[in-house]
Design a binder for these strands. Structure first.
Lengths: 127, 127
DNA sequence: TATTGACTTGGAGCTAACTCTAAGTGATAA
DNA sequence: TTATCACTTAGAGTTAGCTCCAAGTCAATA
Protein backbone atom coordinates (compact mmCIF):
# COMPACT_ATOMS: atom_id res chain seq x y z
CA UNK A 1 0.00 0.00 0.00
CA UNK A 2 1.25 3.46 -0.87
CA UNK A 3 1.14 6.39 1.50
CA UNK A 4 -1.63 7.91 -0.63
CA UNK A 5 -3.81 4.85 -0.10
CA UNK A 6 -3.12 4.68 3.62
CA UNK A 7 -3.79 8.40 3.91
CA UNK A 8 -7.18 7.95 2.32
CA UNK A 9 -8.00 4.80 4.26
CA UNK A 10 -7.37 6.29 7.70
CA UNK A 11 -8.13 9.90 6.90
CA UNK A 12 -4.71 11.15 7.96
CA UNK A 13 -2.57 13.45 5.83
CA UNK A 14 0.57 11.98 4.28
CA UNK A 15 2.53 14.49 6.33
CA UNK A 16 0.98 13.25 9.54
CA UNK A 17 1.78 9.64 8.70
CA UNK A 18 5.40 10.51 7.92
CA UNK A 19 5.53 12.53 11.13
CA UNK A 20 4.28 9.55 13.15
CA UNK A 21 6.94 7.35 11.60
CA UNK A 22 9.68 9.92 12.21
CA UNK A 23 8.62 10.21 15.84
CA UNK A 24 8.58 6.45 16.31
CA UNK A 25 4.85 6.13 16.94
CA UNK A 26 4.67 3.49 14.26
CA UNK A 27 7.52 1.14 13.34
CA UNK A 28 9.63 2.02 10.32
CA UNK A 29 7.56 1.30 7.25
CA UNK A 30 9.21 -1.04 4.72
CA UNK A 31 10.33 0.58 1.43
CA UNK A 32 10.45 -0.51 -2.20
CA UNK A 33 13.89 -0.75 -3.87
CA UNK A 34 13.53 2.84 -4.93
CA UNK A 35 12.91 3.95 -1.37
CA UNK A 36 9.15 4.46 -1.45
CA UNK A 37 7.04 3.45 1.56
CA UNK A 38 5.17 0.21 1.07
CA UNK A 39 2.78 -0.25 3.99
CA UNK A 40 2.16 -3.83 5.07
CA UNK A 41 -0.53 -5.13 7.42
CA UNK A 42 1.57 -4.52 10.49
CA UNK A 43 2.18 -0.90 9.53
CA UNK A 44 -1.55 -0.45 8.97
CA UNK A 45 -2.44 -1.99 12.32
CA UNK A 46 -0.12 0.42 14.06
CA UNK A 47 -1.52 3.37 12.21
CA UNK A 48 -5.03 2.34 13.06
CA UNK A 49 -4.08 1.96 16.71
CA UNK A 50 -2.32 5.31 16.93
CA UNK A 51 -5.15 7.06 15.13
CA UNK A 52 -7.68 5.62 17.56
CA UNK A 53 -5.62 6.73 20.56
CA UNK A 54 -4.95 10.19 19.10
CA UNK A 55 -8.62 10.69 18.26
CA UNK A 56 -9.41 10.15 21.92
CA UNK A 57 -6.78 12.72 22.82
CA UNK A 58 -3.83 10.64 24.09
CA UNK A 59 -0.64 12.66 23.78
CA UNK A 60 2.12 11.90 21.30
CA UNK A 61 4.69 11.64 24.10
CA UNK A 62 2.61 9.11 26.01
CA UNK A 63 2.12 7.01 22.90
CA UNK A 64 5.84 7.19 22.16
CA UNK A 65 6.55 5.88 25.64
CA UNK A 66 4.03 3.07 25.22
CA UNK A 67 5.52 2.05 21.88
CA UNK A 68 9.02 2.14 23.38
CA UNK A 69 7.93 -0.21 26.15
CA UNK A 70 6.10 -2.42 23.68
CA UNK A 71 9.27 -3.04 21.71
CA UNK A 72 11.19 -3.90 24.84
CA UNK A 73 9.00 -6.97 25.21
CA UNK A 74 7.48 -9.01 28.00
CA UNK A 75 9.26 -7.55 30.97
CA UNK A 76 7.59 -4.17 30.50
CA UNK A 77 4.07 -5.55 30.88
CA UNK A 78 3.54 -4.05 34.33
CA UNK A 79 4.79 -0.65 33.26
CA UNK A 80 2.61 -0.73 30.19
CA UNK A 81 -0.41 -1.66 32.24
CA UNK A 82 0.20 1.27 34.57
CA UNK A 83 0.61 3.63 31.65
CA UNK A 84 -2.65 2.50 30.07
CA UNK A 85 -4.52 2.69 33.37
CA UNK A 86 -3.41 6.27 33.80
CA UNK A 87 -4.65 7.11 30.32
CA UNK A 88 -7.92 5.32 31.01
CA UNK A 89 -8.45 7.48 34.06
CA UNK A 90 -7.84 10.58 32.00
CA UNK A 91 -10.38 9.44 29.44
CA UNK A 92 -12.96 8.69 32.14
CA UNK A 93 -12.45 12.22 33.42
CA UNK A 94 -12.89 13.61 29.93
CA UNK A 95 -15.99 11.55 29.47
CA UNK A 96 -17.42 13.08 32.61
CA UNK A 97 -16.66 16.61 31.41
CA UNK A 98 -18.25 15.91 28.07
CA UNK A 99 -21.39 14.46 29.61
CA UNK A 100 -21.73 17.45 31.88
CA UNK A 101 -21.32 19.81 28.96
CA UNK A 102 -23.73 17.85 26.79
CA UNK A 103 -26.42 18.15 29.44
CA UNK A 104 -25.85 21.84 29.56
CA UNK A 105 -25.94 22.21 25.80
CA UNK A 106 -29.14 20.19 25.65
CA UNK A 107 -30.74 22.43 28.22
CA UNK A 108 -29.84 25.54 26.30
CA UNK A 109 -30.75 24.16 22.91
CA UNK A 110 -34.14 23.22 24.28
CA UNK A 111 -34.56 26.66 25.79
CA UNK A 112 -33.72 28.35 22.51
CA UNK A 113 -36.05 26.00 20.74
CA UNK A 114 -38.95 26.99 23.00
CA UNK A 115 -38.17 30.64 22.50
CA UNK A 116 -38.06 30.17 18.73
CA UNK A 117 -41.42 28.44 18.77
CA UNK A 118 -42.92 31.05 21.06
CA UNK A 119 -43.68 28.50 23.76
CA UNK A 120 -41.56 30.52 26.11
CA UNK A 121 -41.87 34.29 26.20
CA UNK A 122 -40.03 35.18 29.39
CA UNK A 123 -36.40 35.16 28.72
CA UNK A 124 -33.88 36.07 31.33
CA UNK A 125 -30.99 33.84 30.56
CA UNK A 126 -27.86 33.31 32.58
CA UNK A 127 -24.74 32.04 30.79
CA UNK B 1 -14.12 38.36 45.00
CA UNK B 2 -10.47 38.86 44.06
CA UNK B 3 -8.84 37.13 41.12
CA UNK B 4 -6.90 34.98 43.58
CA UNK B 5 -10.13 33.66 45.08
CA UNK B 6 -11.75 33.05 41.72
CA UNK B 7 -8.59 31.34 40.52
CA UNK B 8 -8.70 28.94 43.45
CA UNK B 9 -12.46 28.41 43.24
CA UNK B 10 -12.48 27.38 39.57
CA UNK B 11 -8.98 25.99 39.35
CA UNK B 12 -7.90 28.34 36.59
CA UNK B 13 -4.70 30.38 36.72
CA UNK B 14 -5.02 34.13 37.16
CA UNK B 15 -3.37 34.50 33.76
CA UNK B 16 -6.00 32.33 32.14
CA UNK B 17 -8.83 34.32 33.71
CA UNK B 18 -7.31 37.59 32.55
CA UNK B 19 -6.81 36.05 29.10
CA UNK B 20 -10.48 35.05 28.92
CA UNK B 21 -11.52 38.56 29.84
CA UNK B 22 -9.14 40.11 27.30
CA UNK B 23 -10.52 37.84 24.59
CA UNK B 24 -14.11 38.66 25.48
CA UNK B 25 -15.07 35.17 26.66
CA UNK B 26 -16.35 36.67 29.86
CA UNK B 27 -17.77 40.19 30.22
CA UNK B 28 -15.47 42.89 31.54
CA UNK B 29 -15.07 42.28 35.25
CA UNK B 30 -15.95 45.29 37.48
CA UNK B 31 -12.99 46.99 39.22
CA UNK B 32 -12.48 48.65 42.56
CA UNK B 33 -11.63 52.38 42.58
CA UNK B 34 -7.98 51.46 42.44
CA UNK B 35 -8.54 49.36 39.33
CA UNK B 36 -8.45 45.88 40.84
CA UNK B 37 -10.83 43.21 39.55
CA UNK B 38 -13.77 42.59 41.84
CA UNK B 39 -15.68 39.56 40.57
CA UNK B 40 -19.43 39.60 41.11
CA UNK B 41 -21.87 36.72 40.71
CA UNK B 42 -22.37 37.37 37.03
CA UNK B 43 -18.63 37.26 36.36
CA UNK B 44 -18.43 34.00 38.29
CA UNK B 45 -21.30 32.45 36.37
CA UNK B 46 -19.59 33.27 33.12
CA UNK B 47 -16.30 31.85 34.27
CA UNK B 48 -17.99 28.68 35.41
CA UNK B 49 -19.75 28.38 32.06
CA UNK B 50 -16.62 28.97 30.00
CA UNK B 51 -14.61 26.58 32.12
CA UNK B 52 -17.19 23.86 31.63
CA UNK B 53 -17.20 24.37 27.87
CA UNK B 54 -13.41 24.54 27.62
CA UNK B 55 -13.01 21.39 29.71
CA UNK B 56 -15.13 19.57 27.17
CA UNK B 57 -12.89 20.93 24.42
CA UNK B 58 -14.97 23.68 22.80
CA UNK B 59 -12.68 26.12 21.02
CA UNK B 60 -12.02 29.66 22.19
CA UNK B 61 -13.13 31.08 18.84
CA UNK B 62 -16.45 29.25 18.99
CA UNK B 63 -17.10 30.45 22.52
CA UNK B 64 -16.20 34.00 21.49
CA UNK B 65 -18.77 33.79 18.73
CA UNK B 66 -21.42 32.44 21.09
CA UNK B 67 -20.75 35.19 23.61
CA UNK B 68 -20.91 37.80 20.84
CA UNK B 69 -24.33 36.51 19.78
CA UNK B 70 -25.47 36.32 23.38
CA UNK B 71 -24.86 40.02 23.90
CA UNK B 72 -26.75 40.89 20.75
CA UNK B 73 -29.89 39.62 22.43
CA UNK B 74 -33.08 37.85 21.44
CA UNK B 75 -32.82 38.04 17.70
CA UNK B 76 -29.77 35.78 17.63
CA UNK B 77 -31.55 32.86 19.27
CA UNK B 78 -31.71 30.80 16.09
CA UNK B 79 -28.04 31.37 15.30
CA UNK B 80 -27.08 30.48 18.84
CA UNK B 81 -29.11 27.31 18.71
CA UNK B 82 -27.39 26.26 15.50
CA UNK B 83 -23.98 27.00 16.97
CA UNK B 84 -24.70 24.93 20.06
CA UNK B 85 -26.12 22.07 18.01
CA UNK B 86 -22.96 21.94 15.97
CA UNK B 87 -20.87 21.80 19.13
CA UNK B 88 -23.13 19.11 20.55
CA UNK B 89 -22.51 17.01 17.45
CA UNK B 90 -18.79 17.43 17.88
CA UNK B 91 -19.03 16.32 21.49
CA UNK B 92 -21.09 13.29 20.55
CA UNK B 93 -18.41 12.37 18.05
CA UNK B 94 -15.73 12.80 20.69
CA UNK B 95 -17.73 10.72 23.10
CA UNK B 96 -17.81 7.94 20.52
CA UNK B 97 -14.05 8.10 20.02
CA UNK B 98 -13.44 8.01 23.73
CA UNK B 99 -15.74 5.05 24.24
CA UNK B 100 -14.04 3.16 21.45
CA UNK B 101 -10.64 3.89 22.93
CA UNK B 102 -11.76 2.99 26.44
CA UNK B 103 -12.89 -0.41 25.23
CA UNK B 104 -9.55 -0.94 23.61
CA UNK B 105 -7.66 0.16 26.70
CA UNK B 106 -9.77 -2.12 28.87
CA UNK B 107 -9.01 -5.04 26.61
CA UNK B 108 -5.28 -4.40 26.78
CA UNK B 109 -5.20 -3.71 30.49
CA UNK B 110 -7.01 -6.96 31.08
CA UNK B 111 -4.59 -8.80 28.80
CA UNK B 112 -1.59 -7.37 30.64
CA UNK B 113 -3.22 -8.24 33.92
CA UNK B 114 -3.60 -11.87 32.91
CA UNK B 115 -0.01 -11.99 31.74
CA UNK B 116 1.17 -10.49 35.02
CA UNK B 117 -0.77 -13.06 37.01
CA UNK B 118 0.46 -15.90 34.84
CA UNK B 119 -3.08 -16.82 33.75
CA UNK B 120 -2.03 -16.26 30.19
CA UNK B 121 1.30 -17.59 28.93
CA UNK B 122 0.93 -17.25 25.16
CA UNK B 123 1.61 -13.77 24.20
CA UNK B 124 1.60 -12.63 20.63
CA UNK B 125 0.23 -9.17 20.80
CA UNK B 126 -0.76 -6.90 17.98
CA UNK B 127 -0.80 -3.16 18.59
C1' DT C 1 8.76 55.81 55.96
C1' DA C 2 10.21 51.91 53.80
C1' DT C 3 9.05 47.54 52.28
C1' DT C 4 6.24 43.83 51.15
C1' DG C 5 3.09 41.59 48.29
C1' DA C 6 -0.98 41.24 45.49
C1' DC C 7 -2.56 43.31 41.93
C1' DT C 8 -2.43 46.01 37.05
C1' DT C 9 -1.05 46.30 31.85
C1' DG C 10 0.76 45.16 27.08
C1' DG C 11 3.18 42.18 24.86
C1' DA C 12 6.62 38.46 24.23
C1' DG C 13 7.46 33.47 24.71
C1' DC C 14 6.24 28.64 24.94
C1' DT C 15 4.42 23.81 23.74
C1' DA C 16 1.98 20.28 21.13
C1' DA C 17 0.89 18.61 16.98
C1' DC C 18 0.94 19.13 12.99
C1' DT C 19 1.73 21.43 8.12
C1' DC C 20 4.38 23.29 4.65
C1' DT C 21 8.59 24.09 1.79
C1' DA C 22 12.50 23.17 -1.03
C1' DA C 23 15.32 20.33 -3.32
C1' DG C 24 15.78 15.96 -5.10
C1' DT C 25 14.68 10.95 -7.16
C1' DG C 26 12.54 7.58 -9.99
C1' DA C 27 8.82 5.48 -12.88
C1' DT C 28 5.71 6.21 -16.46
C1' DA C 29 3.10 8.84 -20.32
C1' DA C 30 3.54 11.68 -24.78
C1' DT D 1 13.71 11.97 -24.39
C1' DT D 2 11.34 15.10 -22.18
C1' DA D 3 7.85 16.04 -18.98
C1' DT D 4 4.85 14.81 -15.43
C1' DC D 5 3.78 13.16 -11.11
C1' DA D 6 4.00 10.83 -6.80
C1' DC D 7 7.10 10.14 -3.87
C1' DT D 8 11.54 11.13 -0.77
C1' DT D 9 14.19 14.04 2.96
C1' DA D 10 15.40 17.62 6.53
C1' DG D 11 13.96 21.28 8.49
C1' DA D 12 11.24 25.63 8.86
C1' DG D 13 6.62 27.60 9.80
C1' DT D 14 1.90 27.68 11.82
C1' DT D 15 -1.94 27.53 15.19
C1' DA D 16 -4.34 27.25 19.61
C1' DG D 17 -4.20 28.19 24.08
C1' DC D 18 -2.15 29.51 27.31
C1' DT D 19 2.06 31.28 30.30
C1' DC D 20 5.48 34.36 31.50
C1' DC D 21 7.74 38.91 31.91
C1' DA D 22 8.74 43.73 32.98
C1' DA D 23 7.40 47.79 34.70
C1' DG D 24 4.22 49.99 37.40
C1' DT D 25 0.39 50.97 41.17
C1' DC D 26 -1.60 50.60 45.56
C1' DA D 27 -2.77 49.13 50.49
C1' DA D 28 -1.13 47.26 54.52
C1' DT D 29 2.35 46.21 57.64
C1' DA D 30 7.32 46.72 60.32
Amino acid sequence: MTIAEVSKKYNLTQDTIRYYEKEGLIPRVPRTESGIRNFDENSCNWIEFIKCMRDAGLEIEVLKEYVRLFWQGKNTVTERKQLLEKQRNKLLEKQKNINETLERLNYKINLYDEIEKGIRKDFTEKP
